[in-house]
Amino acid sequence: MIELEQVTKTFVAGGAKPVRALQAIVLRIERGEMVAIRGASGSGKSSLLNILGCLDRPTSGRYLFEGHDVAGASDRQLSRLRARRIGFIFQSFHLLDRITALEQVELPALYQGARAHPVAPRERARALLTRVGLADRLRHYPSQLSGGEQQRVAVARALMNDPSLILADEPTGNLDAAAGREVMALLAELREEGRTVILVTHDDAVARRAQRQVLLRDGNMETA
């Protein structure tokens, strides 16, 4: 499902010394696996996740996602992969201001293209929000939702395109323990459905729910 070969990522910020965020990453992840990426702050976890999510390209090396060569793909091809195969969940939720929960979840449908879906986006969004336990929060704005509820809206949004890969960057980082457990329970459910789940976390309890842990240190991988 996912194959990284000697992937590196170097950030060149104008004038400053280049930052080698990832160095020679070699990683294979099978369909349906749940993998936790751990490491100190600045060790390259988010950089790796962004590459895995086709939001960024490796500086060098090879990345095969479901057989597609990501390093050489065009913006349009990468965008299509994100739109149809990948769902993102962020630590700070990244819900848009002043649109309802229902509309947040519907949003990805804008970019799924002509792929005919038998069920209207609004209905799918309603079903997903019901699934994450927010059936009575459909018309709520982000400012009217608790952190845990916002993150569950974000999970529903990530599921809108029925992705095979879920990427979550510290999904429980901004939540209290109870809300964090709810979100983790949802992610575990997704894995049981056969989706691949890759999450970045600092939390031991969260990491233990994954079958596999990847430890990053200064852009290098140490398999735990």
Partner: peptide, 16 residues
Amino acid sequence: RVEIGLRRAIGASRAA
């Protein structure tokens, strides 16, 4: 910017 980034993450191409 954040909205743009989010839209890109959920599948918007540059052209979109």
